[in-house]
């Protein structure tokens, strides 16, 4: 189990690193799809080993919704506006992105070993934590709303992986509820993204949005 978790966790990290320096949105979405399928495989294995039908259901949910439905929904949105396929200008250059991403991995490992590991005593628990930080970095470092949404879903996937490995007996209603909420967020985000590009009224009061 530990080996599989390690393998899946490292693969997830590599996939997110790939997303960090990729500028073609379609590729990022497909990469996210692969990463979701990997999590689904892990949960399938976990379900079989633990003979838990709830974990198996979660695995199916992960594969169908995170691996298939959500990426396809985004790809369909992208297909309507092919010009959005490539991110024109990101906040950070590729080299900086790579450097920061790798530093996040190291930083998270050190942080985990110094803090959380003392309580949970689980090797490689730093992997999902690192993925969460990578997802957050993806949101911060990109302007494209699709990529920002993927960043959020990477964070969600990481939480899902963390739960699956560490606490597979977490109440199913909570897990299923989180999946349903994710679908809601993606659907609403899809509408907002479309509106963002085709807004009826132009506005000149962006100075107001200073946070």
């Amino acid at each position: 189990m530990k080996e599989l978790f390690m393998l899946i966790g490292f693969s997830e990290i590599l996939l997110v690193l790939f997303m960090q320096w990729e500028v073609y949105v379609t590729k990022i979405v497909k990469t996210f799809s692969i990463s979701s399928y990997l999590i689904a495989i892990f949960l399938f294995y976990l379900g079989f080993v633990q003979k838990s039908y709830l974990v198996l259901i979660l695995a199916i949910l992960a594969a169908v919704l995170r691996g298939f439905f959500i990426p396809n929904f985004i790809l369909q949105r992208l297909a309507r506006d092919p010009w959005r396929e490539r991110e024109a200008k990101s906040i950070m250059g590729t080299a900086t992105s790579i450097t920061v991403s790798l530093m996040i991995v190291i930083f998270t490992y050190v942080l985990y070993e110094l803090t959380l590991y003392n309580f949970v005593k689980i090797s490689f628990g730093a992997l999902p934590i690192s993925l969460i930080f990578q997802g957050a970095f993806l949101i911060i470092s990109r302007r494209n709303t699709f990529i920002q949404l993927i960043g959020y879903m990477v964070m969600e996937n990481a939480a899902f992986l963390l739960t699956g490995y560490l606490f597979p007996d977490l109440p199913f209603s909570v897990e299923a509820g989180s999946v349903l909420d994710l679908i809601g967020v993606v659907m609403i985000s899809g509408i907002i993204m479309r509106m963002r590009e085709n807004s009826v009224k132009k506005s000149d009061d962006f100075d107001e949005l200073k946070g």
């Binding site: 907002i192 807004s199 009826v200 506005s203 009061d205």
Partner: peptide, 13 residues
């Protein structure tokens, strides 16, 4: 339905 309110919505989400 104007640009800035949509931007605020996105930041919210």
């Amino acid at each position: 339905n104007d640009e800035s309110s949509i931007e605020a919505t996105w930041r919210y989400i």
